[in-house]
Amino acid sequence: MPVTVSMTVNGKAVSGEVEPRTLLVQFIRENLKLTGTHVGCDTSQCGACVVHIDGTSVKSCTVLAMQAEGSEVNTIESLATNDELHPMQAAFRENHGLQCGFCTPGMVMSAVDLVKENPDPSEQEIREWLEGNICRCTGYHNIVKSIKAGAEAMRS
C-alpha cells in the first residue's frame, strides 16, 4: 500500500508516493531524479550513498524514505552554489581526489560532515573517518589529500 512521504531535500519541500519499504536512496534517485547519490554495495558498507539527514552523514541505502519523514536531507547536489563548486568539491578536483568517480559523491558528503565536527583533521583522523567509504580504485591517497585541502579551504 503506497504511503506519502514528505521531507525537505536540498532546501526544497518535496513529497512523493512510496512503498513503506522504499529506501531513502531510491526515493532520492528514482522519485526526485537526483542521481548524484550512488548505490554501490547496498549493504551499508561502501558509503557511495552518503547524504546528510538533519546535518549528519548517513548511508541512505540503510534508511527508509519514511524514516526521513519531516527531515532536512542534503545530497551532493546541494553543495555547489550558482555553478560554483563547494570548497570540498573544488579540493577533490584540484588534488585529483578521484579515479573512476563512483565513490566521490559519498566521499565528499562524508568529508563535509567530518570537517563540521573537526575543522582541522589530521591525516590519521581523515583515514579513520573514511572507514565507511570505500574506493574500489583504491585512490585513497589523493582522497585524503583532497579532504585535507578541502578542510583548509572551508576554514578560510
Binding site: 551499508s44 558509503g47 552518503v50 549528519t56 552523514s57 548517513v58 548511508k59 540503510t62 534508511v63 562524508s110 560532515d113 567530518l114 573517518w129 572507514e131 565507511g132 567509504n133
Partner: peptide, 9 residues
Amino acid sequence: IGDPQVRHR
C-alpha cells in the same frame, strides 16, 4: 562500532 555513518544511526 562500524563506521561514522553507521554510528550516526
